[in-house]
Design a protein around this nucleic acid. Structure first.
Lengths: 182, 182
DNA sequence: TGTAGCATGTAAGCCGTTACATGATTGA
DNA sequence: TCAATCATGTAACGGCTTACATGCTACA
């Protein structure tokens, strides 16, 4: 029983969340992808569809999810073993430090090979992207409301919003500093 | 001439930076790793040693780096073609949005499966980690000073410091909110 | 004499992506 | 009837990590 990759726990977590909602008949791979796009992508990654199906197969082999009988698309539901695996991972796994791959910072690091105008343009683009991302996440946050069952998701969404705000403010400052640098 | 993976450009960038310093005889794979640990890891990743050697081999095959003649460990220097490749990448490549893999946020998202105490402990640990990271980066920043040649590195280091500060403040708030949640 | 740092690499393997392939259903 | 969305998968492959293997040098 070696540990699963983080993506597996992320998906398993979505399924646990789903199983706690009343009248749940499980989720299809497709629905999992939508859910991942809706939440996971802001703090983790939204796995490719093919990866979701591959992961569901593995989770099924391990007994952590079970196919729900019925016609139509295959629906998956977390098993008690799966729920326990998530719990164990939550409490015993090494949490670790966030991994950031920041292509804008990476390029700014090599600023000497570029021009101030181009760098400023890049930062401006990044600010636009941040605004768009933030708007998306705000939509998510609004949908979560103050429902008790979703309060942790709301907490994390607020975290993300604060992060985007802070990043925007830092980048705007950087852009100004660039203007007066040469 | 298909695009190289980002890591290749990151390493190439370090070599370009090195080639701009006077009396440079190129860098060894080992030195590249140290440099990456020193800067890249805060905004990107610091590749494994084995990956660095693999990447150097590829860059050499592509003619983007050249081995420097001499005895002792193999030293690599960026070629004009390599410098141009970085430049092209800087100006023409798609920059893209940062990728964040945040294990703390991912776990907080599943907060219902945990306990408030455990979550608070997790956030406290994260705050400690952030403080340690920040201290490391402050050391880097101090070493960069206000040297004109390193001003972009300094800029990015300041960015990182501001980010860690903001993240710490957000997480501290979250921890408080957790206290009064149930 | 032994440990830490310098130095280089190979092998195995996982994780995850893109590309490809297929087909059903729904609505304009 | 055509496009979009729903739905599921396989194949090929790239990127990167960990584990393993090797040897030298400096120093305590």
């Amino acid at each position: 029983m070696p540990g699963l990759p983080p993506n597996a726990y992320a998906l398993l977590g979505l399924l646990v969340f789903d199983s706690n909602t009343p009248d749940s008949g499980g989720m299809t791979g497709y629905e999992l992808k939508q859910r991942a796009d809706f939440t996971l992508r802001y703090y983790w990654v939204s796995p490719a569809m093919s990866q979701i199906y591959t992961e569901l197969r593995r989770l099924s082999d391990e007994g952590y999810v079970a196919e729900v009988a019925g016609d139509g698309p295959t629906r998956y539901r977390v098993t008690p073993e799966g729920a326990e695996a998530v719990q164990t991972w939550l409490f015993e796994g090494e949490v670790g430090f966030p991994i950031l791959k920041h292509p804008v910072a990476l390029r700014l690091l090599m600023g000497r090979l570029s021009t101030p105008e181009h760098l400023q343009g890049m930062l401006t683009q990044h600010l636009d992207d941040l605004a768009a991302r933030r708007a998306d996440l705000q939509g998510v946050r609004d949908m979560l409301g103050d429902d008790h069952a979703r309060r942790y998701a709301a907490l994390v969404a607020d975290w993300g919003l604060a992060y985007y705000d802070s990043e925007s403010s830092i980048v705007a400052d950087l852009r100004e500093r660039l203007e007066t640098m040469d």
